[in-house]
Amino acid sequence: MAAGGDHGSPDSYRSPLASRYASPEMCFVFSDRYKFRTWRQLWLWLAEAEQTLGLPITDEQIQEMKSNLENIDFKMAAEEEKRLRHDVMAHVHTFGHCCPKAAGIIHLGATSCYVGDNTDLIILRNALDLLLPKLARVISRLADFAKERASLPTLGFTHFQPAQLTTVGKRCCLWIQDLCMDLQNLKRVRDDLRFRGVKGTTGTQASFLQLFEGDDHKVEQLDKMVTEKAGFKRAFIITGQTYTRKVDIEVLSVLASLGASVHKICTDIRLLANLKEMEEPFEKQQIGSSAMPYKRNPMRSERCCSLARHLMTLVMDPLQTASVQWFERTLDDSANRRICLAEAFLTADTILNTLQNISEGLVVYPKVIERRIRQELPFMATENIIMAMVKAGGSRQDCHEKIRVLSQQAASVVKQEGGDNDLIERIQVDAYFSPIHSQLDHLLDPSSFTGRASQQVQRFLEEEVYPLLKPYESVMKVKAELCL
């Protein structure tokens, strides 16, 4: 049975990233139509530049190519590739079939990587351009969430054990800070992308030097003109047959890092959902379990974690691919890159769409948070109580021993009897502590235990987050809708 299948058929496997999760716009960027249309555009740009620099290419040939950029006979191309065992030459023939007058000058002087690699770089750039505003929107939604809850005390956790208090907004800023680093890295790697350009079979530009009869300047002009037509500021000066596969490492490393950030955020949300302090959106008709109707599973956060793990592992592909590119190139890269580049971007696209949807509907339960604080705060307040007693004339050592005994009794009630923490009640009825009984409410005010959390939130948002989001103001209103 021949390899390949009808990918629109229910009898043929289709990647869930495309069929179930990723956005239509990201799927289109990695589609065959987008790819092969870009090949034709690159052939047109090459012909236009070659004509401008004096090669015998007519206006009629150029116009014929322009008129057929979208006229792609995919069936013919597939048949040609089956016959020739070469995808680029299959599309040269297919393009030439609908451009008979231009057929002889299509791909003039070029090698397969002229269309293959340059198209990949265009796709990487455009895919990054799709991700950047999506990530900015996630940051914006979380920034709104953090600002609104900047002063809401909550129990902090280290080692997932109760620690000092923080605020809900401050905790959210930990998430935002990681995503801001990801946004900066995505922008950097996007701006650092260079075009492969017009380089020939081993990167020496020998074929173009021959076409222009040894004119170095025209060869350099050709490279520059096509690079500018493709919208790049610069091209690699040095290439082998391909652009260095280190570029793929750079791009997928940034995406993998984004995956790590999203995994951490969504894990926190899942843990908070278990504590009943916070939940992701839950639709009115949504079913959490087929057997347990009360369940409210954090399905979206779980999906993000599941896909983020996949995204983090994909960076190993370009690392290994770059390491086995012998001399000017081997074909070890080809099949692998067809999979890992598309999957990385479709996965990143999915987790950003999902995280935006989550961040637009996060639900906080202040009463649950308050109750958990009441359970733990008495123990945390013991040092403040000791200091207040010393100020009232008591002995630190005597007070410490009193607190120690009462704390152990209260802990026994919590752990052995399943009761509430009654340390404060014990202190309130103990005559030894009568000098500070009137101060206990103040000493137990949760806001006095959150330090500068709310001020940190305000400063972080104003100095770091809002300036970073400013270039994306025009796209901030787009909502994230999930079908599944």
Rank of each mutant, 00 (worst) to 15 (best):
D6F: 07
D11H: 15
S12D: 11
S12L: 11
P16H: 15
S19L: 06
R20C: 00
A22F: 06
P24W: 08
P24D: 14
P24T: 12
F28K: 09
F28W: 06
F30A: 04
F36E: 15
F36K: 13
R40C: 03
Q41A: 08
Q41P: 01
L44I: 07
A49C: 09
A49N: 03
Q51D: 04
L53C: 15
G54Q: 09
I57D: 00
D59W: 08
E60W: 06
I62Q: 06
I62F: 06
N68K: 11
D73C: 13
A77F: 15
E79A: 10
E81H: 04
K82G: 13
K82F: 09
R83S: 11
R85C: 10
H86I: 00
D87M: 00
D87R: 01
V88K: 01
H91W: 06
T94I: 14
C98N: 11
A102L: 07
G104H: 10
S112V: 00
Y114Q: 04
N118K: 00
I122C: 08
L124S: 09
R125I: 05
N126S: 14
L128D: 04
L128K: 06
L132G: 13
P133M: 11
I139W: 01
I139H: 02
S140F: 15
A143V: 06
D144A: 14
F145A: 07
K147F: 09
E148Q: 13
A150D: 07
L152V: 08
L155Y: 03
F157D: 00
Q161E: 05
A163E: 04
L165A: 00
T167W: 02
V168W: 06
G169D: 01
K170A: 04
R171C: 01
C172N: 06
C173S: 13
W175E: 05
Q177N: 15
D178E: 11
D182Y: 03
Q184R: 10
Q184W: 10
Q184K: 12
K187F: 10
K187W: 09
R188Y: 06
R188L: 07
V189G: 13
R190K: 14
R194T: 06
F195N: 03
V198S: 08
G200Q: 04
G203F: 05
T204K: 00
L209V: 12
Q210E: 15
Q210F: 01
Q210S: 14
F212E: 06
G214L: 10
D215L: 07
H217W: 13
V219A: 06
E220L: 08
L222A: 09
L222P: 01
D223R: 01
D223L: 04
M225I: 08
M225G: 08
K229D: 03
K229N: 04
G231E: 07
G231V: 05
F236W: 13
F236M: 08
Q241R: 03
T242D: 06
E250H: 07
V251A: 15
L252S: 12
S253F: 13
L255P: 03
L258M: 12
G259Y: 02
A260S: 11
V262C: 13
V262Y: 02
H263Y: 05
T267R: 01
I269K: 00
R270H: 01
L271I: 14
L271W: 01
L272D: 04
A273H: 13
A273C: 13
L275T: 07
K276P: 01
K276H: 06
E277I: 03
E277A: 01
K284Q: 12
S289D: 01
S289M: 03
M292I: 01
R296F: 12
P298E: 02
M299C: 13
S301N: 03
R303G: 02
R303A: 02
C305I: 03
R309T: 07
L311P: 00
M312P: 04
T313V: 08
L314Y: 15
M316E: 05
P318G: 11
T321E: 00
T321Q: 09
A322Y: 12
Q325Y: 02
W326K: 02
E328A: 04
E328P: 03
D332E: 00
D333I: 00
D333L: 02
R338I: 02
R338C: 01
L352P: 01
N353I: 11
T354F: 05
Q356A: 15
Q356F: 02
N357Y: 07
S359H: 14
G361V: 05
G361T: 13
G361D: 14
L362R: 03
V363A: 04
V363K: 05
V364Q: 03
P366H: 08
R371W: 02
R371S: 03
R372W: 04
R372F: 03
P378H: 00
A381T: 14
N384T: 10
V390I: 04
K391M: 06
S395N: 11
D398M: 12
D398G: 12
I403E: 06
I403F: 07
I403G: 05
Q408W: 07
Q409V: 09
A410N: 04
A411V: 09
E417D: 09
G418D: 02
A431W: 08
Y432L: 07
I436P: 04
I436V: 08
Q439F: 06
H442K: 06
P446W: 02
P446I: 05
T450W: 03
T450H: 00
S454H: 08
Q458F: 15
R459D: 09
F460K: 00
F460W: 05
E464G: 09
V465C: 14
Y466S: 12
L469A: 11
L469S: 07
L469I: 14
P471S: 15
P471D: 13
Y472M: 11
V475Y: 15
K477W: 08
K479E: 15
A480I: 15
C483L: 12
C483Y: 06
